[in-house]
Design a binder for these strands. Sequence first.
DNA 1: GACATCTTCGTACAGCGTACGAATTTGAAG
DNA 2: CTTCAAATTCGTACGCTGTACGAAGATGTC
Lengths: 260, 260
Amino acid sequence: MSVVPEQPDQSDPSLRLLWRHRTASPEEPRTKRGPKQKVSVDEVVDAAIDLADAEGLAAVTMRAIAQRFGLGTMTLYSYVPNRDALLVLMADQATGRTVLPDLPENPRKRLELVARLQYDELRAHPWLLEVQDVRPWLGPNMSDRYEWQLRAVDGLGLSDLEMDQTVAVLMGFAGNIARSELMKRRAEKVTGMTEAEWWAANYDTLSEVMAGSHYPLANRVGTAAGEAYQAATDPARELDYGLARIIDGVLAHVAERSPD
Amino acid sequence: MSVVPEQPDQSDPSLRLLWRHRTASPEEPRTKRGPKQKVSVDEVVDAAIDLADAEGLAAVTMRAIAQRFGLGTMTLYSYVPNRDALLVLMADQATGRTVLPDLPENPRKRLELVARLQYDELRAHPWLLEVQDVRPWLGPNMSDRYEWQLRAVDGLGLSDLEMDQTVAVLMGFAGNIARSELMKRRAEKVTGMTEAEWWAANYDTLSEVMAGSHYPLANRVGTAAGEAYQAATDPARELDYGLARIIDGVLAHVAERSPD
DNA sequence: GACATCTTCGTACAGCGTACGAATTTGAAG
DNA sequence: CTTCAAATTCGTACGCTGTACGAAGATGTC
């Protein structure tokens, strides 16, 4: 009991991989025996990102990526510990592709920008929505992003905790709109019909099957939505509406606290 | 061109399965040749729900469910067309387990109830978050739920479209909180550490690797969060805060339009 | 009794992540 | 230059998944 037991390094191995470009490289060019790697980790991750953009996250298989470089499948495991780690690397690297614009003066516009930037990014890389479920990724680009987001809500009169929560609400909301849009696109691909076509094709079945139930409000609202944009939902308007309400709520909150 | 071509029934086959209990049964007890089914669709779906509750959605495999009933794996396919259809049935059936309480008079409390009911349900059945990605399910219990949600936002002064969007915002927000909670639990299971332990174990690595980057706000906010609840996030407070802001925004919106 | 219909389910296949270990290539040490 | 250790490459194999196919068995109707 007098000797400190061996600590088997509980630290997450993929952290160093995530930050590989920014580490101050204490003794970087160490022993370099063995053959040189034919490609770089960045190239692997970039290829995976492109694949996910083009064909969805399900198409990002170790075999498929390896084939892109003419490598054996198992060779990838000398670049990346496993698939989940690759997904995290993809997420951070994709995040790094978005340049962060200067923040406007106007508080409302600042909050809007945070949400819309996230939304645009998720439209460009919808698979980020699925990767989010894998792990809370704490990479360099994600950290930059978070700091930028906090700057957007700084100085409004929110507490530190409220700043974090406000960012979370905005990000989550943007993600939800992007997700519903993704689901819509997927449904169209799977069924081979547009949303309007699906409703037309299933109208008879639906009215037969729902004959015994009464949905006065749902019918009224559904009809209104259908007439407004020939579909059950319209992401762009949902974004405008929800974002306005959320920002209203946040700004009202700080205004109430410090009424000039 | 004079004969109407055969319509190959574009309608979704799982719709009738979803509504199997409410169909007015036009000629229900038709030909009933062949052996009787040993279990019912409801039993299969219930078993799948219990399995998902206990061990997560990944544990819901066709083989595992079949084994629960002592059936051959392929036998399940005479109950349910495929796994995705089963997931949709699970979602609707689980939704049906939640009883919908009467709506309060107070508008704020009504909106809060909509969000909190959703949140509680997602805590009870976290796998619903993953099923949501499979398909927009239009089952009887989900339809009941939607009608109830619309009643909660009816009479506030919102347009039909805004009613739908408001419900969507509340549902999405509740889902996000539930999701972050789920991810936190998963991370703890995977790493075998609590969140606080993870930060402790990775503190050295993190500060080494982030040495070259500056995150003044993130550090300040992170420290505040850590002190407040010994973790990076606290779902219960996020729920309270975000919900209050969103409801503020919605109520302000309708108040502004019809100022009594 | 014959037949059509429905249920049951064993086998098989393609695809996945990845554990394992052998073969190969390279830089450093003697 | 030789020797050796370390690093990379990658073929094979395993267990897991959903499910297509077709045979076998059970049951109600004619």
